[in-house]
């Protein structure tokens, strides 16, 4: 049985650069999109067309100028575009996961603790959380000597894998992935593809940007193209 979990309707997003003479950059133009539990929708298109912007709008990281982004939480639809900051924080805590392209490093916090944090916040017992963190780090081939170190000095690929482990640590019904494999070797790309498949099997709706066509074709159940006018089309 299919169940809608995201309904985006007539979404517009532009940026106005007040300190650059008020230049207005229109990005998303009348974007509508539904996603169901268990599917993986790949957003495809040339760079600069607003793929990341769309994910950030869904996560509430960017504000929406017009339109609605409804996400189902506890059988209730919440419009991210109109939600209060507290509602958005709640959605992020238990409904929407997001793996950004780059890890934002927090000074002094070890990699292992970064991955534990969302699980502990979700009320998962410490022992189970530690086991899950270790499993993810092993599957993503992070050598155990790095686990207790803060990732500030890690390579780009290692940081990206810490970010992925963080994003996959708890199961939230919506998962946004912004180029999760861009800095990874083939072994780790395989590991990420497997994680995505497992999330889908648990009923997670995955919305992702996959630069790598091989990864995209392997994980996506549906591909939507976004064109230079910021419009979204089934491909």
């Amino acid at each position: 049985m299919t169940e809608n979990i995201i309904k985006i309707n007539g979404l517009y997003k532009s940026f106005t650069l007040h300190n650059q003479g008020g230049v207005r950059l229109p990005i998303l133009h009348d974007v509508s999109l539904n996603a169901e539990r268990g599917e993986c929708v790949a957003i495809n298109g040339p760079s600069g067309t607003g793929k990341s912007t769309l994910l950030r709008c869904i996560y509430g990281n960017y504000r929406t100028a017009r339109g609605s982004i409804r996400v189902k939480r506890d059988q209730q639809w919440i419009d991210v575009a109109a939600a209060t900051p507290r509602q958005i924080l709640q959605l992020r805590a238990d409904t929407i996961g997001y793996v950004s392209q780059f890890l934002r490093v927090i000074p002094r916090v070890p990699a292992f603790d970064i991955i534990l944090a969302p699980m502990l916040a979700a009320g998962i017992a410490v022992a189970a959380a530690r086991a899950r963190a270790a499993e993810l780090l092993e599957r993503l081939h992070i050598p155990s000597r790095l686990w207790t170190l803060p990732p500030a000095t890690f390579s780009g690929g290692e940081q990206q894998r810490i970010n992925i482990a963080h994003g996959f640590s708890v199961t939230r019904p919506v998962l946004l992935l912004d180029e999760p494999t861009s800095a990874l070797d083939s072994e780790n790309r395989m590991a990420v593809m497997q994680l995505i498949r497992e999330a889908r099997e648990r009923g997670v709706a995955v919305l992702g940007i996959f630069h790598d066509a091989e990864v995209r074709d392997a994980v996506a159940t549906r591909i939507l193209g976004i064109d230079l006018q910021g419009q979204l089309r089934e491909q």
Binding site: T16, N61, Y62, I88
Partner: peptide
């Protein structure tokens, strides 16, 4: 005003935009 990451990543007001773009990025 708003969520911290929203205000810093998608600032709307000219002054906030100025603040955010004036920060030197160390790393």
């Amino acid at each position: 005003d708003g969520l911290t990451d929203q205000v810093l990543d998608d600032p709307q007001h000219p002054y906030t935009q100025l603040l955010v773009t004036s920060v030197l990025r160390a790393a």
